Simulated scan of single mutants.
Amino acid sequence: MAKKGFPGGMGNMNNMMKQVQKMQADMQKMQGELEEKEIEATSGGGAVKVIANGKKNIVSIKINPEVVDEDDVEMLEDLVLAAVNEALRSAEAMVSDEMSKITGGMNLPKGLF
């Protein structure tokens, strides 16, 4: 008759729980470190520079004064929007890369962290 329960017995279950607890601790540590990491993105050949952190917050926006034209505010708005979106995409990629180091490539659902 086959044994019911967890394959490998309780020892295997305990090892799995230890691994999960270590992964959780590593993720918490990494999330704190990500807040300190920054990603820079530019648009318009460097006319607009946006810096975002690993928490996906915009830290700063720098605009080259030479591109400020009061008659073409719309272009400046487009440059800022492009740089912000690129910074956020880069921050998301950085977070995903860092998480995959901890999770070992497990396909965990997006938004879990």
Rank of each mutant, 00 (worst) to 15 (best):
E36H: 09
M23C: 09
K4S: 07
E77N: 11
L79M: 11
P7R: 02
E38I: 11
E74S: 14
I61F: 12
K18I: 02
M17V: 05
V80R: 07
I58R: 07
L112V: 10
E74C: 05
A52I: 03
M106C: 05
N85E: 06
I63E: 06
D69A: 03
N57G: 12
A2M: 10
I58G: 08
M106G: 02
K56R: 13
L112Y: 06
A52R: 06
N12E: 14
I102L: 08
G105N: 13
L79V: 00
A2D: 10
V20T: 07
S90T: 05
N107I: 00
E36G: 02
K62L: 10
L81M: 13
G54A: 06
N57M: 15
A87D: 07
G32W: 05
M30W: 04
D97T: 15
D78F: 03
K4Q: 03
M1R: 05
I39G: 02
V80T: 04
G5Q: 05
D97S: 15
N64E: 10
V67A: 07
S96A: 14
M16S: 07
V20F: 14
L34H: 03
L76A: 06
K37F: 06
Q21H: 02
P7Y: 00
G11T: 06
N53E: 14
S100R: 13
K29R: 05
N14R: 07
I102A: 06
L88I: 15
G104I: 14
Q19Y: 00
E35W: 00
